[in-house]
Amino acid sequence: MITLLTDLDSSYPLWLQISSVAAWVGFVLSLAWVVSRTVSKDTEILRKIVHIGTGNVILLAWWLDIPAILGITASILAGAITLLSYRFPILPGINSVGRKSLGTFFYAVSIGILVAWFWYLNQPYYAALGILIMTWGDGSAALVGQRFGKHKYTVLGGQKSWEGSLSMTFVSFVISSLILYSVQGNIWQTWVVSLIVAVVATVLESFSFLGIDNLTVPLGTAALAFYLNQVMYVTHLTN
């Protein structure tokens, strides 16, 4: 049975863990509000600020050893709020009423699943890898694609650009490399796994119907990195 309270004996006090996360989320939402009032009311820009900003909470959860139960609870609450926002103007500028995408909801769900999975395995860095690839990789793909994307292609009715996809590959590789290097060092598996994960992340991101990439990218990349490292480790031991 999964014990979600095993991290409650963290060296960091619970009040510090919660207040740190709350302070960061408050900062991100405040930044989005200021931008909407002073710079741009473009809802896509506001969504990307919140998308990229809130995703980095996973780093705080990892570094501060926040209990899994807190991350899962926050994910459930965020998911419920985003579902309601599709019917009511709870999150104007982030989710518009009737918006034909469940991306924000899938984003919250993916965080909850990854926290439950990899906190239980005591390998939270895989959860961070998946979420940050979605956070920064997808965010960069959208921004680069909108600004510089001149070579378009279509997947299941959704239009992408090669420039945006290449940005997704590059950023995903950098994030995966940094995280794996920090936990397993400068070994060949770090770079090979990161390259494979980056390519797969780009393929998954290209299928973004109804925002499903916000679920498939973080879950797929985290699971792939975990699986490849297990396989390569066993192969190394048997050789």
Rank of each mutant, 00 (worst) to 15 (best):
V174H: 06
I2T: 03
S208K: 15
V155E: 04
P92R: 14
V115N: 06
Q159C: 05
I196T: 00
L77W: 06
S167Q: 04
W15R: 09
T6S: 14
V183M: 12
V21C: 14
V155A: 08
Q230Y: 05
V28Q: 02
G130T: 06
M134F: 13
R37H: 14
W136I: 05
D138L: 01
T54H: 00
K150F: 03
V217C: 12
T104W: 12
L70R: 03
Y107T: 05
Y181P: 02
G112I: 01
R47I: 02
F173H: 05
S194P: 10
S208P: 04
S177R: 02
I111P: 03
A22F: 13
A201Y: 09
L121D: 09
S140E: 00
V35S: 04
Y86D: 01
V199H: 05
Y125P: 10
E44D: 12
R87V: 01
I2P: 13
G158Y: 07
N95A: 01
G145E: 01
V25C: 10
I69L: 01
S75N: 10
I90S: 04
N239F: 09
A32E: 09
I133R: 05
V115D: 03
L83W: 13
I187E: 11
G93N: 05
G220F: 02
I212A: 14
A127F: 06
I45W: 12
L70P: 01
L237T: 06
L178E: 13
I72Q: 01
N95S: 04
V183W: 12
V34M: 02
Q146N: 14
L180D: 04
P218L: 11
N95Q: 07
T135C: 15
S30N: 04
T190W: 12
P92Y: 13
F226Y: 15
T73G: 15
I66A: 05
I76G: 03
V144H: 00
W117C: 00
V25M: 10
V192E: 05
Q146P: 03
K160W: 11
W191G: 11
T82E: 08
S110R: 05
S36M: 10
W162E: 03
V234F: 07
T169F: 01
S40L: 13
I90K: 02
T104G: 15
Y125S: 10
A127L: 01
N229G: 00
F226P: 14
T202D: 07
L132P: 06
I94S: 12
